[in-house]
């Protein structure tokens, strides 16, 4: 499962950036998997936690000199703060997790589509607040000056750590309890599993990872802006997760790699490729069209995602593969 290899030590700058971004996305999508995959509830709200994490790290790491101009309303302790990369990223994750506790306790009482809409409402609230809370977030304008410390190595390390956390969760008793409540809610309740409590745990854990992903992304771009954490990121992340296979960690990772490769392939084609003497390039905007069509084709061919419910195994033992049967009703 952890077949992530830092490939591109010798690659060009563009490739390095592509892969760095991919690993940051991986932290996000693995975080999303931790909740969505184990609980079966599609969440549109996790990019809200990404937004919270990104702004938290901006408050903690932008040099105080610059904060005086962009975000004037910060309290003294934050205005003077200038933490190093690692503690700031972790604190950003913790803030997102702390927000997730009350939100989760309220929202996790819902199920199915109602829960999805409620998480979307959460995303819309976060976006609305961060776009208008001028004193702390500079409104819709960007906060600049975040140290760009996310590179290929740090992002790879964080992605691996995120995968480990998600794996540890899903084999723990909490993960098992939540998946049983996903597949057979009535039987799980009869066995004494408190679904709301279990979901809240997963929600908080995945919010932590998404907050970390937001902070990493902020340190990758050096700039944060509320609209960078809204619908398009939400959809891309969900598309990665579902294309790969929603209820498998390997699927989440595969989806990220697959979509990233697809995007960079079409970006290259859009820039122009020369084959022999002839060079051809696609018109601008065709990249997204092609990606959309490719996604639809994959979904038609493999409705359960590229990986389905399976996981990559270290050893080849197909007989041990976990099988889930749908109830016959």
């Amino acid at each position: 499962m952890l077949i992530v290899v830092p490939i591109d030590l010798f690659a060009s700058g563009v490739t390095t950036r592509t892969f760095t971004e991919m690993f940051v996305q991986m932290v996000l999508v693995v975080g999303l998997y931790l909740f969505v995959g184990n609980s079966g509830v599609i969440s549109f709200g996790h990019v809200g936690f990404m937004c919270i994490g990104a702004y938290a790290t901006a408050w903690l790491t932008v040099p105080p000199m610059m904060k005086q101009f962009t975000i004037k309303g910060l309290p003294e302790i934050l205005a003077q703060a200038q933490l190093p990369f690692l503690p700031s990223v972790l604190l950003a994750g913790l803030l997102a997790a702390a927000v997730a506790v009350p939100v989760g306790l309220v929202l996790m009482r819902l199920s199915g589509i109602a829960a999805s809409i409620a998480t979307f409402a959460f995303l819309a609230i976060v976006n609305n607040v961060y776009s208008n809370w001028d004193a702390w977030t500079a409104g819709t304008s960007s906060i600049v000056g975040i140290p760009t410390e996310t590179n290929i190595w740090t992002s790879w390390l964080f992605a691996s750590a995120a995968i480990l956390v998600a794996y540890a969760y899903s084999v723990s008793r909490f993960g098992l309890a939540l998946r049983s409540a996903r597949d057979e809610p009535v039987a799980a309740a009869a066995a004494g599993i408190d679904m709301v409590f279990q979901r809240t745990i997963a929600f908080v854990g995945s919010a932590f990872l998404c907050g970390v992903a937001g902070a990493l992304y902020a340190h990758f771009l050096g700039v944060v802006n509320p609209d960078a954490f809204f619908l398009s990121v939400t959809f891309t992340a969900l598309a990665m997760l579902i294309l790969g296979g929603m209820s498998s960690l390997s699927g989440a990772v595969t989806g990220v790699v697959f979509v990233t490769l697809l995007i960079s392939l079409f970006r290259t084609l859009e820039r122009g490729v020369s084959v022999g003497d002839a060079s051809f390039s696609l018109p601008a905007g065709s990249q997204e069209i092609a990606i959309g069509i490719a996604m639809i084709l994959v979904l038609i061919r493999r409705p359960a995602g590229l990986i389905g419910n399976r996981e990559f195994k270290w050893t080849r033992s197909p007989a041990k593969a976990e099988r889930r049967h749908k109830p016959a009703i």
Partner: peptide, 26 residues
């Protein structure tokens, strides 16, 4: 996608939306 689950349908519609939007963009 008639027999796919709702999540897959939703993502397919989202991908279709991207296609329509970018056809307009082009």
């Amino acid at each position: 996608l008639r027999n796919a689950n709702p999540a897959v349908l939703m993502i397919a519609s989202f991908a279709l939306g991207i296609v329509i939007q970018n056809v307009l963009l082009v």
